[in-house]
Write a protein that binds this DNA or RNA. Structure first.
Length: 300
DNA sequence: AATGTTCGCAACCGCAGACGC
DNA sequence: CGCGTCTGCGGTTGCGAACAT
């Protein structure tokens, strides 16, 4: 399946997992827990690479995985979250308990992308008040794969360039939040006593003294780098400063040397409110979404 | 019934960030 | 601080089932 295996994987099993292999993997993880994927296959008596074991566990064997068809509600949420987050499947999966990123990605590619594209075409058509978009040669990648050589030949011009337009979604690359950062965010939210004490010149200059009040609670709080970082998982375009973040957590100072994400002053004032409004609109929230719930939902 | 085509999904890959030494 | 390893992510591929001709 796929490309040739690297030499280090020669001799290892590939392809679909057998019942026996599944059983071995489940038994081992039940006894020793997750992690240490590299050495796990050997310890579990499996002739698989660690990556394969992790994938099998995460996408198929984990006990909390929800089986069965995607419900209309889940589907609706996937569409809305995709509009908000793009192809950040792990983030989307994080909002859908029991669903894996791979499952959502597959579901999107096979069920939703075409439908959403069609809807967009329809919307454009209505907006323009004309007959509709000019038909383009859009062909799914897997459809191209099944073409005969003759068909492929017919679809290329005299220069050998393809006449097909492959569907591609361009999204900014995802920004990860490390476990350390997540802990800091979780411990410091909502808007807790997490205070920046480093790079003061920059931070004091750029951080607002107060963020807009939560719409629901009316709370206000001093901002911190960690707070902002949690929110900015959504939009790396606002990243513009590196530095160090000190968090006072349970009366213990912890220091995290990592990139700190600081928006400009103007952005800062309206950023959270704007994202929140987008979120509310995209989710079509009939019941008003609580700001705190929203902020927490952004944390991985 | 045989053959070709399309679709859905599990599994693979490379890449890059996190982490430990 | 640099380097090697581990881990997680998103894109891609191959296989088999379902469907069409």
């Amino acid at each position: 399946m796929g490309r040739a295996p690297c030499c280090s994987k020669v001799g290892l099993h590939r392809g679909p997992w057998t019942v026996k292999e599944d059983k071995l993997l489940i038994q081992h993880i039940k006894a020793h827990g997750e992690g240490h994927w590299k050495s796990m296959p050997k310890r579990a008596g499996l002739l698989r690479c660690g990556k394969s074991c992790r994938l099998r566990w995460m996408n198929y064997l984990r006990p909390d995985i929800k089986r069965g068809n995607v419900t209309p509600d889940e589907e609706d949420l996937i569409v809305r979250l995709h509009a908000l987050l793009g192809n950040r499947w792990s983030l989307i999966a994080g909002r859908l308990p029991g669903r894996t990123d791979n499952e959502i990605k597959n579901y999107w590619n096979s069920h939703l992308s075409k439908r959403v594209n069609d809807n967009n075409h329809q919307r454009n058509r209505n907006n323009r008040g004309v007959k509709g978009p000019k038909k383009r040669n859009i062909v799914r990648a897997d459809m191209v794969r099944s073409f005969t050589n003759k068909q492929k030949q017919e679809m290329t011009n005299e220069k050998g360039e393809t006449k097909l337009t492959k569907i591609k979604v361009h999204q900014p690359k995802p920004t990860r939040v490390s476990a350390v950062a997540r802990n800091h965010i979780c411990n410091s939210l909502p808007w807790g006593p997490c205070v920046n004490t480093s790079n003061n010149n920059i931070l004091e200059e750029q951080l607002p003294q107060q963020l807009p009040p939560y719409p629901s609670s009316g709370l206000t709080a001093r901002s911190s780098a960690s707070d902002i970082e949690g929110v900015l998982v959504l939009d790396e375009d606002l990243i513009n400063v590196s530095g160090e973040c000190h968090c006072y957590d349970h009366h213990q100072e912890t220091t995290s040397s990592r990139e700190i994400l600081i928006p400009t002053r103007e952005e800062n004032n309206s950023m959270l409110q704007k994202i929140f409004e987008d979120f509310e609109e995209l989710l079509g929230a009939k019941d008003s979404v609580q700001m705190e719930t929203f902020v927490n939902s952004l944390l991985i």
